[in-house]
Computed example of a mutant assay.
Amino acid sequence: MTAVEDLSFPPLLRGELATGDAIRHACLRAAEGCDAGLVCYRLAMDELQAALVFAPEVPLAQAMAMLPLCGVGFQNALGALAPPEIAVHLDWDGGIRINGASCGRFRAISPGTDPRAVPDWLVIGFTLPLIPATDRPGDTPDRTWLYVEGCADLSPAALLEAWARHCLNWIARWEDEGNRPLHADWEALAHGLGEQTSQSGHHGVFVGIDADFGMLLRDGDSTHLIPLTDLLEAAP
């Protein structure tokens, strides 16, 4: 594992090693009133965890754009570091797909759930499995691990640093240009578009996302809108 002092984060972001779950650590630090831009992380032999603390200045419905933003930042980071044959896609609900199989996920946590209110803080974090716990990964063909997909030489620390850089670049672009560029890039990476799926008690064909990244599910003549805030988890 790379030494903590060797990690390098871009200006406006700073790293903090978590002794336990990195996402929970970030939530606790956010609740204590830490500044936005804190990146909490845990680098283990079998798993990478990281979480970024935000202090939104817009209502939660708009602030939730940080979930797909961090996902696109992850794809950009892994795409730059992994072999060219590695395909990275994103599930609407935060799941990460590598070469079509599930490989970790993003989560969103906030102290409130009112989409019209500006939250005190918002944490977006991810867990990325690196190696399987058994020697029979073929038993779960819909699930994979980073190193199983030909990325054994990729440094988790380098991936973490690259994710932070790409997220910061996307945040600056989002502040300047709004959702449109992020919307286009996310849809290009979306897994399951045009396919049947279920979400929040609704069933239908995943036909796209609205301006605030809500899922559009078409069920016959009806189209259901599932807002991103449905994915929020309660703060610990």
Rank of each mutant, 00 (worst) to 15 (best):
D139A: 07
W145G: 05
T127H: 12
T113C: 04
G100W: 09
L168T: 13
E175W: 15
R180H: 10
A158E: 15
E149C: 11
W121I: 06
C151F: 05
G208Y: 11
T144W: 04
G104R: 07
D142Q: 12
P119N: 03
V205Y: 02
R105Q: 13
H203T: 09
G150N: 06
G214N: 10
A108V: 09
A152H: 14
E175Q: 15
I131E: 11
H183L: 14
G94N: 09
L168Y: 15
D176R: 15
G204W: 02
R116K: 01
A117M: 03
P132R: 03
R143V: 10
R107L: 00
G100A: 11
N99R: 05
L130R: 05
R116W: 00
L130T: 03
R173G: 12
F213A: 08
A211H: 03
H166T: 15
E149Y: 12
T127V: 12
E149I: 08
G112I: 01
H166A: 15
S198I: 04
W121R: 04
S155A: 00
W121N: 05
P132W: 04
R107T: 00
G104M: 07
P111E: 01
P132K: 05
E149T: 08
A162P: 01
N169A: 14
H166Q: 15
E161G: 09
I109Q: 00
H166V: 12
